[in-house]
Design a protein around this nucleic acid. Structure first.
Lengths: 236, 236
DNA sequence: AAGTGGTCTAGACCACAAC
DNA sequence: TTGTGGTCTAGACCACTTG
């Protein structure tokens, strides 16, 4: 574990254990440098990480402050899959509708940046949150990265398996979303009515080396899904 | 302008001008250090910025590569307001339905972290994208930060005015979203039918010093709005 | 004026990838 | 083995906030 990562974890733990609230002030940089016995840059890197994560905000000339969002039951859009493990605070289970090795659709091949004759795992699942339908998910996993998969794994967390079981490193993702009306099939799977609203999300997940390994199409049950997102303007 | 910001802008410009595509390789660090005549840390900071922004990805032992998303017509969720100026590529105009100084609702006061007797600007707008209804927006601006506002400003970009006209610095935001059905009033404003789907988004914008200055409730027209988001797993 | 965070440097050393 | 990005340091100097 790198120093700056460990320090970030320690600081976050400190915030939770002391139940610090939005706008509470953390010790000053010099203090943190001494406490963790590292250079200024290292502390700064830890704090930048926590800032990116939405845990603190830093104000020049003033201090370092705690940032919290104050709503329960919202799923982090960024922690949705692979990243963070926020879903742990919810009870998410999956029912595997279909699992097979096949050739990808043209759309899936394009998004995975492979030829259509290269094989993929196709997985169709219904996911439940606290016992209610959360979403209907269709995923294509590039078989040259995700070399093995079965129903048992797919009924648990596929991303956990990919990282821990296969040792792959998830890097970044592109997420596209829009709202529409459910068709008959989707409505049936989610226990809703045709024409009801849906949030439709397509995601392309890449390994740290830039290779796409998962293209997923997810239809969310509008009654049991709400999301949050924390943004920074440090992005120029 | 700081060095690392300027370098980030230059690199991004370089990518655009040379029309580099996903997976194209950029010059190596040492090369960039020499070209911009700065230290390694400064280049690294520029690249981290671009990585956060979704413009490049870096692979240890291999190189720095271009990252692009390949879909047109999607609005960046993070650049939505205040951040980036991505909406410039769309033609967004606004019709001001109502603008007044008043006391905030309990909900607005809570989200702005003020007392209910402190005054706010309340603005209700319909926003159009390429001539079609994009969303219905209700916003509360803390009057002690946003000291002045009028219909003319509100018919243009309020965030542009806040930053350039008032000199305020936008720091970070909390965004909450879910999907639901339009009520009669919303449907009328958006030119849709009651019961049609909507994306409903609440945002709380903070200044760099952590003070919330804008609480907004936005209802999107599902036919004319689609969003994208780029995520990194560097977040622990 | 004093306190506090941000930028930038030069250089040592480490970790992963590709040949 | 070499190339390439990542971490970490010590210290100088800068920019913003607060009293």
């Amino acid at each position: 574990m790198l120093k700056y990562q460990q320090i970030a974890i320690d600081i976050e733990k400190y915030i939770e254990e002391h139940n610090l609230q939005q706008r509470d002030k953390l010790p000053v940089l010099e203090n943190l440098m001494a406490r963790f016995n590292v250079s200024k840059s290292t502390i700064t890197k830890s704090l930048d990480l926590l800032e990116k994560k939405g845990v603190v905000y830093q104000v020049r000339g003033s201090g370092i402050f705690v940032r919290r969002h104050n709503r329960e039951g919202y799923i982090s859009l960024l922690s949705n899959q692979g990243f963070k493990k926020d879903l742990e605070e919810f009870n998410v289970t999956s029912e595997v509708v279909e699992l097979k090795v096949c050739q990808p659709t043209e759309e899936a091949a394009y998004n995975l940046n492979i030829d259509q004759h290269q094989e993929v795992y196709y997985v169709k699942r219904i996911r439940y949150i606290n016992g209610q339908t959360l979403c209907l998910e269709e995923s294509y996993y590039n078989k040259s990265s995700v070399t093995y998969l079965n129903r048992e794994i797919a009924s648990e967390s596929i991303f956990h398996y990919i990282q821990e079981g296969l040792g792959l490193k998830v890097g970044f993702s592109d997420i596209y979303l829009h709202v529409d009306k459910l068709n008959e099939e989707e409505a049936a799977y989610l226990g809703l009515k045709e024409g009801d609203p849906k949030l439709f999300m397509e995601s392309i997940f890449h390994l740290t080396n830039g290779q796409p390994f998962d293209f997923s199409k997810v239809t969310y049950n509008y009654k049991h899904s709400q999301f949050f997102l924390q943004a920074n303007s440090h992005i120029l």
